[in-house]
């Protein structure tokens, strides 16, 4: 790692005065005097160790008081502070009771060690997974390079890459927790250095590669995530999350699905929220699957129809065609877990 100084932030305001860049900006266009945030630090140190991120100063926001709370209110819903660790989310009984798919997603994320270190804010703001993007030897589009190594039909190792919205960059978003958060219609609360707070829906938080190749979310340099808010579930809300991986122990997602349904008494789906992870460069809400399932009885036939509808827009690369049947099976299974 390059030499950097360490600033121990005492408050969000203090941190916002110190910061002048984001990891996204630095990976795309390196500047000499970058001051960046780190909380759990797992993704930041990964980039610094690779030599792709060379901060002059790291601002440690991990110890800022007040960002580590989980609050639940039956009417207002759930507020999870940005410094809450994944392990704390996994062991929270109210999240397990009211947001089962989130509980399941967190329990399948990373390793026990990393769940003790990683914070929710850092998890949703981590950069995408693609071995070329994360390699110091490959200047790809996301690093101001002139090509996509993964896309190449013969030499591209793209078995883990995107099958939807992959016209620009083919990497996939790395946070499987975001799959579940988006399905619950969560919002991200962001504070800027002017003291202004905004609440951004997860659907608007992530930025597609087609829109901006340098970014995967809307965060600007003088902004910080303070909390993630989940609306209160109704008594008819049911959810499920399934992640497919190559190894049983732990692994990055090959395809994960979060389903949140409003179900009426006779097993009819009143509204559906269906989000796919590791399918696109951002967590992907499948409007096609949602529309196919709404006002239908939840059964095997309709679940399969919704799953197949989700994949009508899939455009696999040379080596990831398996993801299409994988998603069909997983979406169907997740819907049926709710019935």
């Amino acid at each position: 790692m390059n030499k950097f100084s360490w600033y121990e932030a005492k408050s969000v305001e203090d941190a916002l005065q110190q910061v002048n860049s984001t990891v996204s900006e630095q990976l795309y266009k390196h500047t000499d005097k970058a001051s960046i945030f780190k909380s759990g630090g797992v993704d930041v140190f990964d980039w610094v160790k690779e030599g792709l991120l060379k901060p002059q100063k790291i601002i440690n926001i991990r110890n800022i008081p007040g960002l580590d709370k989980i609050d639940y209110d039956r009417k207002k819903g759930m507020s999870i502070g940005s410094n809450v660790t994944l392990a704390e989310i996994a062991s929270n009984p109210e999240i397990k009771t009211n947001y089962l798919a989130l509980h399941q997603a967190v329990n399948h994320a990373a390793t026990p060690q990393l769940r003790n270190m990683s914070t929710l804010g850092g998890n949703i703001a981590q950069r995408n997974r693609c071995w070329y993007f994360r390699s110091g030897d490959h200047d790809c589009f996301r690093k101001e390079g002139d090509r996509c190594f993964a896309r190449h039909s013969e030499t591209g190792e793209n078995e883990n890459h995107a099958i939807i919205d992959n016209g620009s960059c083919v990497s996939v978003h790395a946070s499987s927790i975001s799959t579940a958060l988006m399905a619950f219609n969560a919002s991200v609360v962001i504070l800027n250095s002017e003291g202004e707070k905004k609440k951004v829906a997860m659907d608007d938080f992530f930025v597609t590669a087609a829109k901006d190749i340098a970014m995967e979310n809307i965060l600007q340099a003088k902004e910080i995530i303070t909390e993630i808010i989940l609306p209160a579930p109704s008594k008819n809300t049911k959810s499920a999350y399934i992640k497919q991986v190559a190894r049983e122990s732990y692994d990055w997602s090959l395809g994960d699905v979060a389903v949140v349904l409003e179900v009426s008494g006779n097993a009819t789906c009143r509204s559906a929220s269906i989000v796919l992870g590791a399918a696109a460069p951002v967590p992907y809400r499948s409007m096609e699957a949602q529309q196919a399932l709404e006002n239908k009885t939840i059964n095997s036939e309709n679940a399969l129809a919704a799953a197949e509808a989700a994949m009508t827009i899939a455009r696999p690369l040379a080596k990831n065609g398996y993801k299409v049947p994988l998603f069909v099976a997983t979406i169907k299974q997740a819907i049926l877990e709710i019935s």
């Binding site: 030499k3 950097f4 100084s5 360490w6 600033y7 121990e8 932030a9 005492k10 203090d14 100063k57 110890n63």
Partner: peptide, 9 residues
């Protein structure tokens, strides 16, 4: 380490 202070590099 004290908060509000810079250390290193």
């Amino acid at each position: 380490l004290v908060t509000g202070e810079e250390y290193g590099p």
